[in-house]
Design a protein around this nucleic acid. Sequence first.
DNA 1: CATACTGTTAATTGTTTAGTGAACGCGCGC
DNA 2: GCGCGCGTTCACTAAACAATTAACAGTATG
Lengths: 125, 125
Amino acid sequence: MSKRKPDRSFGHVLREARVAKGFSLRKFAQMIGVSPTYLSQVEQENVDPPTADRVQTMAELLGENVDEWTALAGRLTEDLPDIIRSSPTEVPDLLRAVRGLTPEQLRTLTAQAEQLQKQGKSREK
Amino acid sequence: MSKRKPDRSFGHVLREARVAKGFSLRKFAQMIGVSPTYLSQVEQENVDPPTADRVQTMAELLGENVDEWTALAGRLTEDLPDIIRSSPTEVPDLLRAVRGLTPEQLRTLTAQAEQLQKQGKSREK
DNA sequence: CATACTGTTAATTGTTTAGTGAACGCGCGC
DNA sequence: GCGCGCGTTCACTAAACAATTAACAGTATG
């Protein structure tokens, strides 16, 4: 037993997705603009995952979810830090308050945020 | 006119706060464990702000808000990326949904998140 | 067997980051 | 005018990061 390690690590998932699409290592390396060597290392996890923007183009080329892959890579998409800093105390507080919520609960909260957006349009104070 | 530039930049705010507390540059540098040289550079903004954890100890020693200072420094506190990655698609979605909300609205949402936390305690599924 | 792919390994590289140390000029007290 | 504490400037660096080049082994095709 213990042969089937699901391995949701970035390198492993990347290799699976690349092979599933029928791209050779050299070809895909060229598509994303890195050396075949580097891509090999990344897939084997001998080196850290690439930068957030390269992870993004990889995910896009392979039709995968960018946020998910970015998280797997241990990175953050570029827009998030800016959102956090736009309300430097309130957004961190919110994030700490949502820690541990289920995906469903998070979606509920997202829906409520969208409601608030609409409210903000009409009545100003 | 245009003499009073509020200057909410990290270096400027740091210097104000340090001087207000009556610490000399050399003394405060020693308190936080950096060279006086470096602290001087930081306050003048000749170099980038320090790492998130050093910003944190600075803010704490000066009695200032850590999240606010971290944002000023263009950094993120260490706990936030982990929270985001704990639900890699839902939390980014939430963040994008709250972009542009007022601080009051954000606090409302935080309160709702806390409600959800309580709900989660009792009824599972 | 030549060649044309596949992926892999080792060594090295350029850049950025986060700082340091030595020396400098200024004013203050004596 | 000597020492002392103040902040500043210049030159430099150790470590990390993101990646590269060159050379290699295996497999399959003609």
